[in-house]
Design a binder for these strands. Sequence first.
RNA 1: GUGGGUGUAGCUCAGCUGGUUAGAGUACCAGAUUGUGGCUCUGGGGGUCGUGGGUUCAAAUCCCAUCACCCACCCCA
Length: 424
Amino acid sequence: MLTTRPRGTADILPGQVEKWQYVESVAARVFRDYGYREIRLPIFEHTELFIRGVGEDTDIVEKEMYTFKDRGGRSITLRPEGTAAAARAYLENKLYAGPQPVKLYYSGPMFRYDRPQAGRYRQFHQFGVEVFGSHHPAVDAEVMALVMDFYGRLGLNDLELHVNSVGCPNCRPGVRRALQEYFRPSLEELCPNCKNRYERNPLRILDCKSERCAELAKTAPTTVDCLCPDCEQHFLQVQQYLRDLGVPFVLNKSLVRGLDYYTHTAFEIMAPDIGAQSSVGGGGRYNGLVEACGGPSIPGIGAALGIERIILAMENRGLIPAIKAGPDVFLATAGDEPAREGFKLLAELRAAGVASDMDYQGRSLKAQMKYAAKVEALYTIILGEEEMGRGCVSLRDMAAGSQREVARQDVIKVLKELLNGCCD
RNA sequence: GUGGGUGUAGCUCAGCUGGUUAGAGUACCAGAUUGUGGCUCUGGGGGUCGUGGGUUCAAAUCCCAUCACCCACCCCA
């Protein structure tokens, strides 16, 4: 073999791809039901967009971007996430000049140079939704409700929605001060990582999984304790709207999102059984993002859902529906003359919307039957010298194992009746 | 970037105290059944034993390096 696929990428083969199509069709339906319209964005953007939009101090920008120079010397980056690009498109196309809010969804590949593991890939796929132009707390609740509704429609009813508020630029300094004061006496007990975080981003200590840090973090002040009156009010309203909608959630004061642009609401949906990477989706409000991209001060909120992880969770719970992948009809022939006639009949079947196939390998009738069973054809048409002589074909129901003769000119009509009766 | 595990047939794996021609199951192809799938039986094709180097009379087996995959840390979808 000349080469293999790059690390952290996957070939989604027939048999697997049907699962994706199923999840995608449910997603499109949910988004439509909630009034979101699709937007298709570039797979790569100017590097600058992510540095400004995602934040210089994030892991994504510091070490995970696929960045290269194109032939014109521009620095280009394969998108590591979708929100920054959506904000760019909103701005660039002046969507703020139309009716607000603007509700968008997209899906597609994202790229992060991470070490792959269960549920984590270098090219992975997300659904994303973004709402620009509203700071109403009901919109926060709507986005979370949409996400949970989507999981529910897939049968994922046991996922936990964790919600928190990370405050706004007004309350952030207070949080930082409170945390540093709290951790100062026990600074030496923190893990090396958190000692670093103490100065750079003390919020992250709350999220640490190392035992001692987690123990200390339990009684630490949180963002919620330090919210300014506006933020507190917003957060209380978001929770009330969630209760009004009957969306269960857990208040998780240690939930911290890594991307710089988040303000106010932050949330994450967990599936504890799909490996260490248990987040199947997450999002939050980003009221500073559009402005950070050089536009007017326009609020926004969004969510990103990991398709691979959703499928993992569904597989673990046996939620993938059986999807018929075989043809409606396999046309088996015996003899040269019937093979030529069959080739014409095949074209007629297809033109009539009957998914059908025949053998081109010159196999024996027996082998053709075996193949038809293997590819799970619903029916097999057998066309040999005998049938040719009588102007008919033999029609075999593969599941039942029963067989009858049908006049050649009636085959399509009979098949369409049979297929409509059982499938549609 | 760090740590652990695993690399032998398309797939799942055995063989690994070094020793004839590297095996099984399954899948694939064919035959038993000269026009009929699922069951059974028989046969066949298919392997640079991840790659490179070393030790040895002899390496799938021992040593080193390297690559890939898996899992975990970090972080996140």
